[in-house]
């Protein structure tokens, strides 16, 4: 991607209010042509509402969005033609086959005849499901449904692809396939807006990232630029069997400790789309942000030991988007 790339999406002071609550509160950013732009934030941060306004589904309370030179409020039809949307939900018809679903969504974007059939075949190839095209969506696994969900959004070769949490609740293999697909689409020239609360995915895919929380963009830039916000702070992650009372305050009182949070472990809370419910995990992940992790780690372990906590594992990481978010908000992305 060239540094001189022009903005294909410009979001300016975008606001969406539902009653007194501002779901999106003065968001501004540009997406440059040919880049993968990430919008990273916890659930409820305003990512989906922002995407809904960019895709003309919701009218902004105020502010402006320009996509490929057209305004979402004044020329929504042109905006919709330029966009492909992959919603967070699997927006497909379960009793129709993948082929029938793709044909329907292609027709909704004005495709027909031979071109439609070519694009359907191409989308199935991209999804890696050409051999199962005539099976009903209801017979697919969660990951396969997600892949067809993406295929339905790219058939008309949009200039910009909006992907809202496209990997929620699927197995690692399907997740990898989807991430590689996004990379490949971007290589073919498609600009991508990718929202997620998975820091690893955003770091893997995106050229630039906007971090969003409580409806506001709190940091924006290339991933290295964002990491520099944290400076040389490392994240000490301690996995505990349970959280003794008062231990967080004791950790915060340690010298050289900048912030301390406690959350449920990463994927324990999320059920997958196969209907399998995760086992109840009562363990706790304590994250300590410190510039001197080498010294602090011993103090942290000592404090936890005195408090009677059973330590399951300890991990020290260099700054990443998770630590950026922790640094900026004092909480985890999964809070």
């Amino acid at each position: 991607m060239s540094d001189l790339a022009k903005a294909i999406v410009t979001v300016t002071d975008l606001v969406k209010r539902f009653g007194d609550n501002a779901a999106v509160d003065g968001v501004s950013f540009d997406i440059l042509e040919g880049e993968v732009f990430g919008l990273l934030g916890p659930n409820g941060a305003g990512k989906t509402t922002a995407i809904s306004m960019i895709s003309c589904l919701l009218a902004p309370t105020s502010g402006e969005v320009i996509v490929d030179g057209a305004s979402v409020t004044r020329d929504p039809r042109k905006v919709k033609c330029a966009l492909g949307v992959v919603p967070q939900e699997i927006a497909l018809y379960p009793t129709l086959t993948a082929l029938e679903n793709l044909r329907f969504w292609g027709r909704m974007y004005g495709l027909g005849g031979r071109l439609l059939e070519e694009r359907v075949a191409e989308a199935l190839e991209t999804a890696g499901l050409a051999d199962r095209a005539r099976e009903r969506i209801e017979t697919y696994s969660g990951g396969m449904k997600r892949r067809i969900n993406i295929a339905a959004g790219i058939m008309h070769h949009p200039r910009v692809l909006l992907m809202d949490e496209p990997t929620v609740g699927i197995d690692p293999q399907s997740r990898n396939h989807i991430l590689e697909t996004v990379k490949e689409l971007n290589r073919r020239g498609m600009t991508v807006l990718y929202t997620s609360h998975y820091m690893e995915e955003v770091e893997f895919l995106c050229d630039r990232v906007g971090i969003i929380d409580h409806g506001k963009v709190i940091a924006l830039g290339a991933i290295d630029e964002l990491r520099r916000l944290v400076g040389d702070e490392n994240v000490i992650s301690v996995h505990l069997s349970e959280l003794p009372a008062g231990v967080l305050d004791a950790l915060r009182a340690l010298p050289e400790v900048d912030s301390v949070t406690a959350t449920a472990p990463a994927d324990a809370a999320e059920a997958d789309e196969e209907g399998a419910k995760p086992e109840v995990d009562e363990t706790v992940m304590v994250q300590v942000l410190s510039k001197d992790s080498g010294t602090v780690i011993a103090d942290v372990v000592s404090v936890l030991g005195r408090a009677g906590a059973r330590i399951l594992s300890v991990d020290v990481r260099e700054p990443n988007l998770e630590s950026v978010f922790l640094h900026l908000t004092g909480k985890s992305l999964r809070d």
């Binding site: 003309c56 589904l57 039809r77 919709k80 919603p87 699997i90 497909l92 909704m108 974007y109």
Partner: peptide
């Protein structure tokens, strides 16, 4: 509820 209606609304159809 299943987001197929919003998805249709995000297509160029009125």
């Amino acid at each position: 509820d299943n987001w197929t209606l919003p998805r249709m609304l995000m297509s160029p159809g009125t």
